[in-house]
Amino acid sequence: MKLKCVIVDDEPLAADLLRSYALQTPFLDVAGVYNSAIDALPRINEGGINLIFLDINMPKINGMEFSKTLPASIKIIFTTAYDQYAIEGFKVNALDYLLKPISYVDFLQASNRALDWFKVMNNISAESIFVKSGYQYKKLEYSNILYIENQKDYVRFFLEGQSEPVSSLMNIQQLAEKLPCHVFMRVHRSFIVNLDKVKTVERNCIVFGKTLIPVSDTYREQFNLFLNKGIL
């Protein structure tokens, strides 16, 4: 699998270094190197970009603000000389954060993380999903999933008959878009439920044993339509 990437950094030497790293990495295909977000935008808008190595401190529009304008399908690895941006970077669903000066080892680790993410997202089938948990890929049958919970950069899959959830580095929005909508429904910014497993609803909460999953206002109308189909 190859990832088509773009490098955006207003420092020419830093941009050239990242380009040289990307060219050394077999699964990366460099689609362009730019010294500002504005210059990179036409190429990004053409489509087909998977990954952006994006500097934060740039003129006109900084990388953090620019990342908020990009589609969720494009993953971001931030590059910066200032570590105070780390927490903010993960708030905008950055896949990783590289602190300058960047070594090739750090670059490769972040790139491998991106590759793993895309492999997981491409392994969603009609009946199951492969997820990377730790150093393993685990096949989860849809019929065994009760619900999915978002926790920062990870999601946790709660399975029928299994006390411990399976955790995977994944974005819940991307996951929700790829899971079959006739089986799964997002009912809260932090929760996706398997509709076949919904047995009890109490006061706008879905009951799974001792766990209560709230149905937020954003998703309540859609969920109520599902419930009304089954009411006699």
Rank of each mutant, 00 (worst) to 15 (best):
L51E: 10
L51Q: 11
L51P: 05
L51D: 05
I52H: 07
F53H: 01
F53L: 10
F53R: 06
L54R: 05
I56A: 05
I56S: 08
N57K: 12
N57L: 04
N57W: 00
N57E: 14
M58P: 04
K60C: 01
K60Y: 08
I61M: 14
I61H: 04
I61A: 06
I61K: 13
N62G: 02
G63K: 08
M64E: 03
M64G: 08
E65F: 00
E65T: 06
F66A: 00
S67P: 04
K68D: 03
T69A: 08
L70Q: 04
P71V: 02
P71C: 03
A72T: 09
S73D: 15
S73A: 12
S73Y: 10
I74Y: 03
I74A: 10
I74D: 04
K75F: 06
K75P: 01
K75Y: 01
I76M: 08
I76L: 11
I77S: 09
I77F: 15
T79H: 00
T80W: 02
T80R: 13
T80A: 04
T80S: 12
A81V: 07
A81Y: 07
Y82A: 05
D83N: 12
D83E: 13
Q84W: 09
A86Y: 14
A86K: 10
I87N: 02
E88N: 12
E88K: 09
G89E: 11
F90N: 05
F90G: 03
K91N: 14
K91W: 04
K91H: 12
K91M: 07
V92H: 03
V92N: 01
V92E: 02
N93M: 05
N93Q: 11
N93A: 08
A94Q: 02
D96L: 07
Y97Q: 10
L98M: 02
L98P: 05
K100H: 00
P101A: 01
P101L: 00
P101F: 00
S103P: 06
V105I: 09
D106W: 00
D106K: 07
D106M: 03
L108D: 14
L108N: 05
L108G: 00
Q109M: 07
Q109C: 11
A110E: 08
A110Y: 13
N112A: 01
R113Y: 04
R113L: 11
R113V: 06
R113E: 11
A114L: 09
L115E: 13
L115Y: 09
D116W: 12
D116L: 07
F118R: 10
F118V: 02
F118M: 07
F118T: 10
K119Y: 05
K119F: 06
V120I: 14
V120K: 02
N123T: 08
I124Q: 04
I124A: 08
S125N: 12
S125L: 01
E127S: 11
E127V: 10
I129T: 07
I129M: 13
F130G: 01
F130C: 06
V131R: 09
V131T: 13
K132I: 04
S133Q: 09
G134N: 12
Y135A: 10
Q136F: 04
Y137Q: 10
K138E: 14
K138A: 01
E141G: 10
Y142N: 12
Y142V: 11
S143R: 15
S143I: 13
N144Q: 10
N144A: 09
I145H: 09
L146W: 08
Y147H: 11
Y147F: 15
Y147M: 05
I148T: 14
I148V: 13
E149R: 15
E149N: 06
N150D: 07
N150C: 13
N150Y: 02
Q151Y: 13
K152S: 06
K152C: 00
